[in-house]
Amino acid sequence: MSQKGWIFDKSKCVSCKACTVACKMENNTLTEVNYRWVIEKESGYYPSAEIRFTSMACFHCANPACMAACPIDGAITKDADTGIVLIHQELCVGCKYCMAVCPYGAPQFNEASQKVEKCTFCNQRTEQGLLPACVITCVGRALEAVDDETWDGEVPDGFASRNMTHPAVKFKD
């Protein structure tokens, strides 16, 4: 099987949030639900303070904690061909266990449906050979969606260890 995932170039993200909004517009999420978001991390002291940006979403982990924690059979699946992790709305009971265990905060609770949802890797697009909405619009060209990759390497400061769930993301500088 292949494992779809993200390559994120930290030196190119401009924190414009286009990925966040593109995702919302493509997938028509509730205003309050963002499948992708940008974290801004401040460090240091005036006048040498700094800010760094990281775009986050579901990393469609090799060992998804959400899937392991889900009490409903088949409500969270990992596709054998693509590695995409999906929460099936017709089965989800909204218990939020997945939200509690995900090291990255990917699952989002939908107050309207009382269920949990998250990034689908724009499954409906990628299966047609189209790119995910966030990647198309990435202003800094920092974000790539790739089919297969050795998902290893350094992670940003504060990012949960790869060893926990083996996220399909690679960070470049």
Partner: peptide, 23 residues
């Protein structure tokens, strides 16, 4: 601050918003 915590904050903030597309 962990990345996750910050995200949860963001979600919490977001959920305070009263108006959805439906409303």
């Amino acid at each position: 601050m962990s990345l996750k915590k910050k995200n949860n904050d963001l979600v919490k903030q977001a959920l305070r918003h009263p108006l959805s597309r439906r409303t």
